[in-house]
Amino acid sequence: MSDHDNDTGIIAKLRAPWQSMLDESPKAVRTFWVVSLVLLLLIAFADIFVHHHEHFGIDGTPGFYSLYGLGACVVMVLGSKFVVALVLKRKDTYYDD
C-alpha cells in the first residue's frame, strides 16, 4: 500500500503546478500531454530511419540526442537547485539594506 501512496505522492507533486490550468480547462492540458508524449516517442524512434553522421562515436547511437537532452537537463537542474543554491542562494532583499 505504501508503494501506492508514494505513487500518488509523486503524481500529486507533478500535478500541482498544473492545477490552476486544470481547473480552467482540463481538456486542453490533457491534449497537450497526449500530443507531447506521442511526439516525444515518434521523434526518439525516428533515429531508426535517420542516419546521423557521427563525429565522436556516441552521437551516432540511436536516441542519443533524446537521452542526452533529458539527462543534461536533469543534471543541470538538480545541480543548480541542490548544489549551487546551497552556497549562493539568498533572500531577494539581501542587498537592500
Binding site: 507531447s36 521523434i43 536516441g63 542519443f64 533524446s66 537542474v77
Partner: peptide, 13 residues
Amino acid sequence: VSQLQLLLWSGLA
C-alpha cells in the same frame, strides 16, 4: 531530427 530530439526531451525534463 537530432535537434528536435534534444529539445523535446529537455522539455520533458
